[in-house]
């Protein structure tokens, strides 16, 4: 039995009368690539914020890396990494400064930072760009760097919110190579995406519709269940019945 790193039980968030996330229950294993899909407004961001310790649930239970989402939000934040398309790096700091800044925030010592930043720059082939402003990097490079920074402190789980939006098809695939490598090292990946081919790269996926998890399984099983040829068709089948949008 593999270790469970995310566990939720009827996790719910209400905003007034509006139930953004409605009794969502699921488990994610260590080292798993878990795709968290849903239409705009289905409640993905709300759910993700609760899992990251940024928003206190209205009811239900959840533990992240063994820590409780009500009482241990600070421990959760230390044990996870996070990146999104919207928030990633500081544009007016250099590559090296960004690595040091985020590494420092995540609690790495100066000594660790020195070796880790050198390793990272080497691994990404950014030797020539290390002292350049992040603003001067192409988007794809920023996203790869941003991911690497989010896992620099070797978190148990990394949350990725549409990490590949707008990225070219080659860089998108290089990005997924980084995800696979991290998963091989035992980092659990929790990722949202609007690219249905990327859903196929996940070990398991959940599809949220109007605040509820409508389906959760491996891509293979979901396609069988819905008699679909690809994930696009599965998604369409489930999400077209959605009543609310954002």
């Amino acid at each position: 039995m593999s270790e469970i790193v995310i566990k939720t039980d009827k996790l719910t968030k209400r905003f007034g009368d509006f139930i953004a996330a409605n009794e969502i229950t699921f488990k994610v294993n260590k080292g798993e690539i878990f795709g968290f899909l849903g239409a705009n407004g289905a409640g993905k961001t709300t759910a993700m914020r609760m899992l990251c310790g940024l928003s206190i649930p209205s009811s239900g239970q959840a533990t992240i890396a063994g820590f409780d989402v009500y009482k241990q939000t600070e421990q959760i934040k230390k044990n996870i990494g996070y990146m999104s398309q919207k928030f990633s790096l500081y544009e007016d700091l250099t590559v090296l400064e960004n690595i040091n800044f985020f590494g420092g925030i995540y609690g790495l010592t100066d000594k660790e930072l020195k070796t880790k930043s050198a390793q990272l720059i080497d691994q990404l082939g950014l030797q020539l760009q290390a002292k350049k402003l992040v603003a001067s990097l192409p988007l794809g490079w920023k996203q790869k760097l941003s991911f690497s920074v989010a896992v620099l402190h070797e978190p148990k789980i990394v949350f990725l919110d549409e990490p590949t939006g707008g990225v070219d098809p080659v860089t998108r695939r290089q990005f997924w190579d980084l995800i696979y490598d991290a998963a091989d090292r035992g980092v659990t990946i929790f990722v949202t995406t609007h690219y249905m081919d990327e859903a196929e790269y996940c070990n398991r996926i959940s599809i949220m519709v109007d605040g509820v998890i409508k389906a959760l399984d491996t891509p293979r099983n979901l396609k069988d269940t819905f008699h679909a040829n690809n994930m696009d068709e599965v998604f369409y089948e489930l999400a077209r019945s959605a009543k609310r949008s954002e």
Partner: peptide, 13 residues
């Protein structure tokens, strides 16, 4: 200009 960026597959269709 990119009317469907960040939009889910159903709304895009």
């Amino acid at each position: 200009d990119e009317p469907t960026t960040g939009v889910d597959p159903v709304s895009r269709k």
